[in-house]
């Protein structure tokens, strides 16, 4: 009979394999493999799975309509759906960085696309999209955000 310590090791190994298998078995369209955008590693911050954030992050109740109402005229967004898609596209294709929201004084994850001057922000836990807009002064806006890790 194997010693108890060996059985414990085998059990721990099996459990680790099971956990690993579960963490990789995320639901999602099979044709769209999860790809980590290499630009999505903010300096000093862990890499983020931008495909998952763009797919799963949600607007808080009423926030999408309010934000489209306020920012909708800034971009080529004919309707609220186009605005939402632009926010998510910015997450997928923008440079990821972190910063401190100067009014809330909390850390946020930002994404910025230079070519379209598009900025999207999400909560630190990556669950909520908090805003999406085109900045008044382009890239300088995200560079100068408090504690911004954005690199031009």
């Amino acid at each position: 009979m194997p010693p108890v310590s060996l059985l414990r090791c085998l059990f721990a190994l099996a459990l680790a394999c099971l956990i690993g298998a579960c963490s990789q078995a995320e639901p999602g369209p099979p044709a769209a493999p999860v790809a980590v955008n290499p630009t999505a590693t903010a300096a000093g911050a862990p890499p983020v799975d931008v495909t998952r954030i763009a797919r799963d992050a949600t607007w808080a109740p009423g926030a999408l309509a309010d934000h489209f109402g306020k920012h909708g005229s800034e971009g080529p967004w004919p309707d609220i759906g186009a605005y939402d898609r632009s926010a998510r596209d910015t997450i997928r294709n923008g440079q990821a960085f972190t910063y401190i929201d100067r009014t809330a004084n909390v850390r946020r994850r930002g994404f910025y696309v230079v070519s379209g001057n598009r900025f999207t922000s999400v909560t630190e836990d990556l669950r909520r999209i908090t805003t999406h807009f085109r900045t008044d002064n382009g890239e300088r806006y995200v560079v100068l955000l408090p504690e911004s890790t954005y690199r031009p």
């Binding site: 926030a63 920012h71 929201d101 009014t103 946020r108 922000s121 908090t130 807009f133 900045t135 806006y141």
Partner: peptide, 11 residues
């Protein structure tokens, strides 16, 4: 208490 506060980049 306030939450989900977000600066909106509009002056």
């Amino acid at each position: 208490a306030l939450f989900l506060v977000q600066s909106e980049g509009v002056t």
